[in-house]
Simulated assay, not measured.
Amino acid sequence: MTPHLVEVKAMTHPGVNYGAVGVRVRLGRILRDGKAVIFAFDHGFEHGPKDFPEDRVAARNIIQQVVDAGVDAIMLLPGMARLTHDIWAGRTALIVKLTSKTELRPESSIYLQTRLATVEDAVALGADAVAATVYWGSEHESEMMENWMIIKEEAEAYGMPALQLAYPRGSHFKNWYDPEVVMYGVRAAIEVGADLIKTYYTGSRETFAKVVEMAQGIPVVMSGGAVRDRPVDFLTDLSNVIAAGGSGVAVGRNVFRAKDIKSMARAVMAVVHEGLSPEEAAKRFNLE
């Protein structure tokens, strides 16, 4: 048990579960109509400069545009949240991602996410939720599970929702997007208490419906993944996720690498919250 958690529990009233109320209240700020568009932006740390075109290096400009577009939440690492608080504060929900990795580390630990901060740090930043990745099936699964359980326990004490990036990933997998494998990762996520799950799109409405069913009522959002060739292709994937009962998307590259960042973000919002077809959304926002 961490010192942070001991202090928090010492301040609570025995037999009164205030934390459960806090989780519901904060989750409602993200899933305002039961669905959410989360702008995920940990790429600079996890992928490095290769993910950013030369005119997209300035993180503040990207975050300003997606906040102006009205996304429901942004998911940032603690350092970026600190550097950009004047942009997002009071305008959108903040999810602080507490684990990460770089691609500079040795191949032997590439499927390991390390804890960067505590739930208490996220509270200090004004967060509405915390997030952590577990690579289910990885050689380092046990370490990430232990980190997750610490984060989850701390989050409950603070009334903070915990989003799990439930990714089946490891050197032995032939296909990370196999529906059976993704379903297993989602089942594992709910077994360890995830309040919201981000996972891979399995390629069709029918298979993703099974992923949503496996979550047994816990909201599931699609991982935005690699950049699609055409905006409408990504919007089609997203439309299938919503039709399958999914709760939205946590998207990064398919927005910040789009020709028009703000228009792409607004198109994503229209598909998720208004139920526009991919073609209607692309036409409304002049996406090529």
Score class of each variant (00 low, 15 high):
residue 1 M to V: 09
residue 8 V to P: 00
residue 9 K to T: 10
residue 14 P to V: 12
residue 15 G to M: 12
residue 18 Y to D: 14
residue 19 G to I: 06
residue 21 V to E: 15
residue 29 R to H: 15
residue 31 L to M: 12
residue 32 R to C: 01
residue 38 I to W: 12
residue 40 A to C: 04
residue 45 F to N: 13
residue 45 F to K: 11
residue 46 E to H: 11
residue 46 E to S: 14
residue 51 D to M: 06
residue 51 D to G: 00
residue 52 F to Q: 04
residue 54 E to G: 00
residue 54 E to C: 04
residue 56 R to H: 07
residue 56 R to P: 11
residue 66 V to L: 01
residue 67 V to M: 02
residue 67 V to C: 02
residue 68 D to I: 00
residue 70 G to Y: 11
residue 71 V to R: 00
residue 71 V to C: 03
residue 71 V to F: 01
residue 72 D to R: 00
residue 73 A to M: 09
residue 74 I to D: 07
residue 75 M to G: 10
residue 76 L to P: 01
residue 79 G to D: 13
residue 85 H to F: 06
residue 88 W to I: 10
residue 92 T to E: 09
residue 93 A to G: 09
residue 94 L to E: 06
residue 95 I to F: 13
residue 100 S to M: 05
residue 100 S to G: 15
residue 106 P to V: 01
residue 107 E to T: 11
residue 108 S to V: 09
residue 110 I to W: 12
residue 113 Q to L: 05
residue 116 L to S: 05
residue 118 T to S: 15
residue 121 D to L: 09
residue 125 L to R: 07
residue 127 A to E: 11
residue 128 D to V: 11
residue 128 D to K: 08
residue 130 V to S: 03
residue 130 V to A: 04
residue 131 A to F: 08
residue 132 A to N: 04
residue 133 T to M: 10
residue 133 T to D: 05
residue 137 G to E: 08
residue 138 S to L: 08
residue 139 E to W: 14
residue 142 S to I: 10
residue 145 M to S: 03
residue 145 M to T: 04
residue 148 W to G: 01
residue 149 M to I: 08
residue 149 M to Q: 15
residue 155 A to F: 02
residue 157 A to C: 07
residue 157 A to S: 10
residue 158 Y to K: 01
residue 159 G to F: 04
residue 164 Q to L: 14
residue 165 L to Y: 14
residue 168 P to Y: 11
residue 174 K to D: 09
residue 175 N to L: 12
residue 177 Y to G: 02
residue 179 P to Q: 09
residue 181 V to N: 07
residue 183 M to G: 08
residue 183 M to P: 00
residue 185 G to N: 02
residue 185 G to K: 09
residue 186 V to A: 02
residue 186 V to Y: 03
residue 187 R to E: 13
residue 193 G to P: 00
residue 198 K to E: 02
residue 199 T to F: 05
residue 203 G to P: 05
residue 206 E to F: 01
residue 206 E to C: 01
residue 206 E to M: 00
residue 209 A to F: 00
residue 211 V to R: 05
residue 215 A to Y: 06
residue 217 G to D: 07
residue 226 A to I: 09
residue 227 V to W: 07
residue 228 R to M: 06
residue 228 R to V: 05
residue 228 R to A: 09
residue 228 R to Q: 15
residue 230 R to W: 10
residue 231 P to D: 06
residue 234 F to L: 06
residue 236 T to R: 15
residue 238 L to V: 03
residue 239 S to N: 15
residue 239 S to Y: 13
residue 241 V to N: 10
residue 242 I to V: 15
residue 246 G to W: 06
residue 248 G to D: 05
residue 258 A to Q: 12
residue 264 M to I: 00
residue 266 R to Y: 03
residue 267 A to T: 02
residue 268 V to C: 01
residue 272 V to D: 13
residue 274 E to M: 06
residue 274 E to P: 00
residue 275 G to V: 01
residue 275 G to T: 02
residue 277 S to M: 02
residue 277 S to F: 02
residue 278 P to F: 05
residue 279 E to W: 11
residue 285 F to N: 03
residue 285 F to V: 00
residue 285 F to L: 12
residue 287 L to Y: 07
